[in-house]
Write a protein that binds this DNA or RNA. Structure first.
Lengths: 149, 149
DNA sequence: TTAGATGCAAAGACTTTGCGCACTT
DNA sequence: AAGTGCGCAAAGTCTTTGCATCTAA
């Protein structure tokens, strides 16, 4: 219940600024996203929202997430093989996903500074720092694999 | 019809080495993958295979691709928002996907050398060079956006 | 011969859409 | 009052699975 009122209010302001309507469902999604320190799948968001507002349907969650992305307050990425995950766009970071244990860790976007410059220079490509999702193997799974062989 | 016999044969050898069976469907999938210089979605692979062998069903394609991934001859990534794409693991490269036009370009894996070292050092994370998929905006869409504003 | 591979159809996971009512502004 | 937003249910897309049949080895 560590609602960061500031963040929630920022989202609600963005909604008003865009002349969209502030509803209970949107407010609750905003709260859930602010409470979560990491990324959540649409399904996890739905569950969390329904704990507070059981009437909210999954399709509404998707519509709200879509709206939040348009408003640039939320961002999603596709990690691993499964469903998309959503998080506040304020938290600029990359994702490292282990192909073995499927766990994901977040790292500061600064790790991608050099790569970003390189791609800009070589290909004119502007890297989306919110969206960086790297696959590989985490330290633990590497160690486990070594032990096995 | 530029079948690279070498690559195809390598795949077939890998199948035999794993005591799996070489079938018409597998051979055709291997040929399609070798013919394609880039990455293909499961659906595109199915279509291409069915042009040569109309009887092959989508589920078989998925099963074959799964087997090929186990054998480490094929790799898939999730680009953009849509379906997974598959390609030979021999072709080590990263993907840059434009969020605007959805186009993807391949770049040499060497661009990720520095990042790879950094992640290894900072997090013990071993980057999967086959799987790197970066989102952002291509030069053309950036230019178009500038013009608009 | 016989275990693995396939085709078909059905199920599953995730996401989007149509429609009429409800709620925000 | 006016029109956006919502719940519900159905459809859509991509992928997996069960089972009987077929086939490579």
């Amino acid at each position: 219940m560590t609602e960061q009122r500031n963040d929630v209010d920022e989202i609600l302001s963005a909604i008003r600024a865009a002349a969209r309507r502030v509803t209970v469902a949107k407010r609750t999604v905003a709260e859930v996203l602010c409470d979560a320190n990491g990324h959540l799948s649409a399904d996890e968001i739905t569950t969390a929202v329904q704990q507070r507002q059981p009437e909210v349907s999954p399709s509404t969650i998707y519509r709200i997430l879509e709206e939040f992305e348009e408003l640039k307050v939320v961002v999603h990425s596709h990690l691993g093989q499964s469903a998309a995950v959503y998080h506040l766009s304020g938290a600029v970071h990359g994702h490292l996903t282990c192909e073995e244990c499927e766990r994901t860790v977040q790292i500061p976007a600064s790790h991608f500074d050099a790569l970003s410059k390189d791609l800009q220079k070589s290909y004119g490509f502007l890297l989306d720092r919110h969206h960086v999702a790297i696959s590989g193997w985490c330290a633990l799974c590497q160690a486990a694999q070594l032990k096995r062989s």
